[in-house]
Amino acid sequence: MQTHKAKRVEITIEAIMQSRLTDALTKAGVTGYTILPVFGGSGRSGQWSRSGQVSRASGMVCVVCMIRPDRLDGLLDAAFEVVERHIGVVSVVDCEVLRAERF
């Protein structure tokens, strides 16, 4: 099966910032993304769990998108504008996709 090289960007961010991030990604030309719930974790800001939150705004979400490697810089610039001052993690890994024209 023919596969194509792509980049998988995973951004874990506060739920309250979700729409701001996805708006920025869309403006940067990202054609699709997936939003996943985050159940809890631990980091520089301490431990937290979804069950300990009063509202969704206090929780975290994970936004995952796959793009062609030549578009990575534009995406990261757009994402950084939003996440710079906020709690979160941005990671990039190499991956392969079947239908390159979709990314």
Binding site: I16, M17, R20, S55, A57, S58
Partner: peptide, 11 residues
């Protein structure tokens, strides 16, 4: 407040 204001402060 522990719903509206925390969300606003996070932003």
């Amino acid at each position: 407040s522990y719903i509206a204001v925390p969300a606003a402060m996070r932003v």
